[in-house]
């Protein structure tokens, strides 16, 4: 039987762990920002529940323990906390794209509810997802010729890419990193090879319709490539 004080400690630790993800700014590496408030509620809830063992009357549950938690079970419960403390938090990167569907070409996609909002956004403030949605809604890639873009993402490349090419990529998530879907813009620049895969970069340039992997698409011809830090919000939210 697990001592009450240990249970209480584990619950409080769980609360502090969740709070530490929020406080450390890494919570958005895992979940959509709309769930942040739930994580905070849970953090407070765990601490209150953990403290409640102190005030529980000892005779009320004596000899009547329904739980069948063993030390091994408890070890499983603390796994997320231990992993979280030992392994530095990192958002999904290029490695996670190898077994996912990489959306580069204009896919026929369901019209997103936020499409009108996207199209009315000033072009300088558009992120990769906004551009992708615009591409999806117009079948002709040449209409974007000459339009200026400034986006942030990480470098992705596979064997289809030439030395002067990479994809500036982001993951979109609707729930959490478990449903992450990669999207990206093709970038061409002579400096492309200076940036290793997974490096976060800021790309500034103009679109020019071109061929990639046998398909016609808008390609971002970069004027400026600069390394940058992982943004506070690494994922983009389609809905």
């Amino acid at each position: 039987m697990i001592p009450t004080s240990t249970k209480s400690l584990v619950l409080i630790a769980m609360g502090l762990y969740l709070y530490s993800r929020f406080f450390g700014g890494t919570l958005l590496f895992y979940i959509n920002e709309r769930f942040v408030i739930l994580t905070l509620f849970a953090a407070v809830g765990f601490i209150i529940v953990g403290l409640s063992y102190r005030y529980r009357l000892p005779n009320a549950h004596e000899g009547h323990e329904h739980g069948n938690l063993s030390w091994a079970g408890l070890a499983i419960v603390v796994t997320p906390i231990v992993l979280g403390l030992v392994i530095p938090p990192k958002p999904l990167g290029a490695a996670a794209m190898s077994n996912r569907d990489v959306r580069l070409e204009s896919l026929t996609s369901a019209p997103a509810p936020s499409n009108d909002v996207v199209l009315s956004k000033p072009k300088g403030e558009r992120n990769i997802l906004d551009w992708q949605m615009d591409f999806w809604s117009s079948p002709d890639p040449t209409v974007f010729n000459g339009q200026e873009a400034k986006v942030i993402g990480f470098v992705y490349r596979d064997d289809r890419f030439k030395a002067n090419e990479f994809m500036v990529s982001r993951f979109t998530i609707s729930c959490c990193a478990a449903d992450a879907a990669p999207i990206g813009l093709m970038v061409r620049s002579d400096e492309a090879k200076l940036f290793p895969t997974d490096q976060w970069v800021e790309v500034k340039g103009n679109f020019q319709a071109g061929q990639f992997d046998g398909k016609e698409m808008p390609i971002l011809i970069a004027d400026l490539l600069a390394p940058t830090d992982i943004p506070n919000q690494p994922y983009l939210y389609p809905y």
């Binding site: 590496f29 979940i31 809830g45 997320p80 990193a177």
Partner: peptide, 19 residues
């Protein structure tokens, strides 16, 4: 890379579901 991806996805499912 695979290990890091595993940890991130595991944590994200857990953090999403635990509340």
């Amino acid at each position: 890379d695979k290990g890091q991806t595993f940890v991130t996805i595991f944590q994200s499912i857990f953090i999403e579901a635990v509340p």
